[in-house]
Design a protein around this nucleic acid. Structure first.
Lengths: 218, 218
DNA sequence: TAGATTGTTAATCGATTAACAATC
DNA sequence: TAGATTGTTAATCGATTAACAATC
């Protein structure tokens, strides 16, 4: 289990580090926009809400190239981190379920160059055939998930924002269409098809966890 | 640092376990609704998408009271877990920012008995004074966060779903109003006031993490 | 008693933190 | 050279997994 695949030159980066690296990237871009060219681990750590030690450790996974006694060159670091996170090429996203949460997601990622919207699916007769934006895709019924992927470009990421009782079959449809990454924003626990990686966001769960934390503070 | 506080009889439950316990609760309620009265750790684990070993370990933190050779009584377990998570008393939630994501959150938690909506805040002149539901609170401007909390009941949880550039000041306003738990659904890294516990959901970050996973699979 | 399944104690694993060496 | 700050190696800590004991 220690085979070194030549196609993956970098050693495996721990999951928590990957998540933090993405937040560093956001902070770095913000600083770059403010004209900052050099930043110390202490400053960047503060902006990202972590301690400087873990920041330097994280950066060491991607080959930080900081200058001792000085800090990091912002532009260089942005290039290094975004390369490591593969956030250089835009991902094609397909969204199933154009309800409140689906729209919120569109609003959040609409202008984000990292993602392009490949397709929209919904079974609401009032929505099928419509567009959410003038240059966006036409909303297709859920049963078209397979077909749409079959002709054009395949989707990189499938987002499941449907009614709860449709979540599992939509997940299976995405998997059958060759989608390998799923973002599930329903509270349903999905049983994943082979090779599928799933992330889940459950708003009610987050509130529940906060209320537990609240009780502990009493 | 090993003082046993008499007001907290249960030993500290690890964070990941708390999150999983909440999902077990959802799965248990679902099973109960289907008339299931007894369930084994294997079955429940499958429904929650975890392995049975970690499930039993998690349940041991809250005093599982399973029957060896048989399994768990569903109703008893629901009572035990929800007691441990303090999900018996409803939490009062205040929502700042009634945009797409705010509405999605309302839709998700509207019928959830664990949460009651205490107040709505937004600066949009088209929204201030309106209600999102007939029996719901009137939308107040963001600057009222302090005042509204001062008279009625205090809020247990403050949700920040505003424009990014308002997130930090809204956070501070909640903290000043005595709110101790914050759910931040903006991509902004907040600097927390003393004693504030914050959870963050960043949709774009989740997509980014998936696209990293996708790249690793190539 | 035999089979099934829970619950606990010990071992492993991985991530975070601390100590220190490197170097601009 | 002195000061500042990065980067790496070692120590700690916490969570997961494995082994096994308990008991219905």
């Amino acid at each position: 289990m220690t085979s070194l695949s030549p196609s993956r030159p970098t050693a495996k980066i721990p999951g928590p580090s990957v998540a933090r690296l993405a937040t560093y990237l956001t902070a770095l871009r913000d600083r770059a926009a403010h004209g900052v060219t050099v930043i110390s681990s202490a400053e960047l750590a503060k902006a990202a809400g972590v301690n400087p030690l873990i920041l330097r450790k994280d950066l060491s996974y991607v080959g930080g190239h900081g200058v001792r006694g000085v800090g990091y060159q912002v532009h260089k670091l942005i290039a290094t981190v975004s390369m490591a996170l593969h956030s250089d090429s835009a991902q094609v996203v397909a969204l199933a379920g154009v309800g409140a949460l689906g729209r919120a997601l569109l609003a959040h990622t609409g202008r984000d160059p990292r993602f392009t919207l490949g397709a929209l699916f919904d079974d609401d007769p009032g929505l099928v055939g419509a567009r959410m934006s003038p240059d966006g895709p036409v909303i297709a019924p859920l049963r078209d998930i397979g077909g749409t992927a079959a002709d054009g470009e395949p989707f990189d990421i499938g987002v499941i924002a449907t009614r709860d009782d449709l979540a599992q079959e939509v997940c299976d449809a995405f998997a059958a269409a060759g989608v390998q990454q799923i973002l599930n924003v329903t509270p349903v626990t999905l049983v994943p098809a082979e090779g599928l990686s799933i992330r889940q966001i459950d708003l009610a769960l987050e509130l529940q966890l906060l209320s537990f934390a609240a009780a502990g503070n009493r």
